[in-house]
Simulated assay, not measured.
Amino acid sequence: MKLYTAAAQARARAVDNNIKEQLLNASYYVFNNPGPRSLLMAHRDLIRSLLTFRDEIVNKAIENIDQALSSFNATYRQRNFPVVTVHVRRTDYTGYIKGKFKLTQLDELYFERAFEFYKERLPRPLFLVLSDDREWCRRNLQAKDVIVIAKASAAVDMAVMSLGDHHITSYGTYSFSGALLGHGHITHPIGHNTKYNLADCVDSHFFHHISRDKTYKADNSEVVVSWRL
């Protein structure tokens, strides 16, 4: 609350809506890796203005995107289609989500449904996949409109996610944070497992549940997603 109060006061003094002054005169340690999606989505613009990437990280991220788009004769800044970033976290998270939430890894069903969610709402979207298991992604997800991007550092990958027009996330705070720092809409997996409920209470027009189960239904029929140059 201290941070939000200080940010509101600083924003009132700012001339361009970007906060450039130090907000707190003390450091705080936040325990237990909290990631309250509902609170963070409500303050997305504020968070984006506070947490910015260094220029060299952004430049490397754009370079990686340009490399991925080269086969389409396009670049990040010169294209006529929306880019949807896709984060697929697998290797180090398999045991964690099984032990903590009794979850299995996401398979291609969730990602294919998320692809369709955007294809039904956007003109010719291109999906850029970032992952710690790129071989799995190439075998199971890659298609003419799905590209697995080159391996990079965690910071560059998060910057790539933030540069997407829209986002497909997997489990984990890292995946959500990359999308949160970007613009546009975010999809997140949901299923029958009630032990995992970190995203159930998010009330945002930009956050959407996509079913990961064959029998679980997520109603996104009224969702409108737009994109323009």
Rank of each mutant, 00 (worst) to 15 (best):
A10Y: 06
D132K: 01
C201F: 11
A179F: 07
R212E: 08
G95N: 14
V148H: 07
N32V: 13
I210H: 05
I65M: 11
R138S: 12
R79G: 08
L46K: 04
L130C: 14
K98S: 14
F53D: 05
N17V: 01
K102N: 09
R124T: 14
G95K: 11
G95I: 07
S221T: 15
L51Y: 12
F101T: 08
Q67T: 13
T194E: 12
R90A: 00
D200W: 01
D165F: 00
S38H: 13
I19Q: 02
K214D: 00
Y171V: 02
L163T: 01
L181F: 11
I47E: 04
P82V: 06
L50N: 03
R48V: 09
Y76H: 13
P125T: 09
R124K: 13
T94P: 00
K151L: 04
F176Y: 12
A8C: 11
R134S: 14
S38T: 10
A8P: 02
A114M: 01
I149P: 01
V30L: 14
L180Q: 02
I186T: 15
M1V: 03
Y196D: 11
I19R: 01
D165K: 00
T85E: 07
E135R: 15
T104V: 05
S211T: 14
F127A: 07
V88I: 08
A159C: 13
H208G: 00
I168V: 13
H166V: 07
H188K: 06
S70Q: 15
Y93N: 11
R48D: 03
R121Y: 11
E56F: 15
Q105R: 07
V148L: 07
V156E: 05
Y96W: 15
E21W: 08
D133I: 07
A159V: 02
F176D: 00
Y96L: 12
Y196Q: 12
L141A: 06
A61P: 14
P123L: 06
Q9E: 11
D45Q: 15
R11M: 05
I57Q: 02
D157H: 00
L40C: 04
G191Y: 03
